[in-house]
Simulated assay, not measured.
Amino acid sequence: MTLNEHLYDYFIEKTWGLTEDWYASLDKNDPEGIYATTDSRLIEGLKKQNYAFHQQFCTLFKEHDEHLFQEWIEEIAKDEQHLSTPIHYILREFFRTQEQYLNLFEAFVASNEQQYSPEALNEWRRKIIQTFEEVITQFSEQSHDRSMERLRAQQDMIQELSAPIITLGRQTALLPLIGEIDTDRAQFILENTLLQCSQNSTQLLYIDLSGVAIVDTMVGHQLFRLIEALSLIGVKCALSGVRPEVAQTAVQLGMDFSNITVKSRLNLWDSN
């Protein structure tokens, strides 16, 4: 029997035991994440994921495949429970699992040191360490990519919620603006409003500023830019909810609202 075959047989019969030992010694006091769960269904799934790793790792002793862990890594990296677990907790468990393999390998060497050369054994010891380094690196990259995808999706949702177009009638809509408006948000408001008004055939858009505490030169410029752009696609605009401090700032900045319909309250529109 070759060393590779002997190692495979030695490790494969201990895979489930590795999983049980790993979970039994797991620190379950993490303040958050999958390792602190008490849900039996999630615990069973966690053990299956760990067991699947061991089965694939043992294949390493029989064949060389640089994509050996690709599917497993992708599954774990996109798993919602692992995405909700701090990355340093996950890396900690990778290193604990690596320690399991190194300890098991040392037990193998102790019982077979006369059968195989030290050079061959050292080569496999290095291979185990190298494989874990590669898996950890690939997982970290995948996890980062998934986290960035989720962050971008959340940012897109926040942007959409920050500039909602609310339909009031067949050709009438409302754009309530709330909070601080920076350059990026102003650009999104412009693009999203033009798109929504065009798609909905809006002819009259009410822009409510009651939720905007500060109007500086940039915000004023972007507001006029929005109104001018909407006029080019046939949408008439009316402003509402201009706060006294905003009105004072607008006057100080020399903003001209003379050609724009301004209402003091939203509920006045229907009666005027």
Rank of each mutant, 00 (worst) to 15 (best):
N4S: 14
N4L: 03
E5L: 13
H6E: 12
H6A: 15
Y8P: 00
Y8M: 05
E13D: 09
L18M: 15
W22T: 02
Y23I: 04
K28S: 08
N29I: 02
N29D: 14
E32Q: 15
Y35K: 06
A36Q: 10
S40W: 00
L42I: 01
E44C: 04
L46Q: 07
K47F: 02
Q49P: 00
Y51T: 02
Y51I: 03
H54P: 04
H54Y: 13
Q56I: 14
F57Q: 02
T59R: 11
L60K: 04
F61N: 05
K62H: 06
E63N: 05
H64L: 01
H64Y: 06
E66V: 11
L68M: 13
Q70W: 04
E71A: 15
W72M: 04
I73E: 04
K78C: 03
E80H: 13
H82M: 02
L83G: 10
T85N: 06
T85K: 03
H88C: 07
Y89H: 08
E93F: 05
F94G: 02
Y101I: 00
N103W: 06
N103Y: 12
N103D: 13
L104M: 14
L104K: 11
A107W: 08
A107Y: 04
E113L: 15
Q114L: 12
Q114E: 14
Q115D: 12
L121H: 07
R125Q: 10
I128V: 11
I129E: 03
T131K: 07
E133P: 01
I136T: 15
T137F: 13
S140Q: 06
E141P: 01
Q142Y: 05
S143G: 09
S143D: 11
H144I: 09
R146F: 09
S147N: 10
S147R: 13
S147Y: 15
E149W: 00
R152G: 00
Q159N: 14
P164S: 08
P164Q: 11
I166H: 10
T172Y: 11
A173F: 08
E180L: 09
E180Y: 08
I181R: 00
I181L: 07
D182K: 15
T183V: 13
A186G: 10
L190F: 09
E191N: 10
L195Q: 12
L195S: 09
L205N: 05
Y206A: 13
I207W: 06
D208T: 10
G211I: 06
G211F: 06
I214P: 02
V215Y: 03
V215P: 00
T217K: 05
T217A: 14
M218L: 15
V219G: 06
G220C: 10
Q222F: 06
F224R: 07
R225N: 05
L226Q: 11
I227A: 02
I227R: 01
I233N: 13
G234H: 03
G234M: 09
V235D: 03
A238T: 10
V242Y: 04
R243D: 05
P244R: 03
V251A: 11
Q252M: 11
L253T: 08
N259E: 15
K263E: 05
S264T: 15
S264K: 15
R265A: 07
R265T: 13
L266T: 07
L266A: 00
L268A: 07
L268C: 05
L268Y: 09
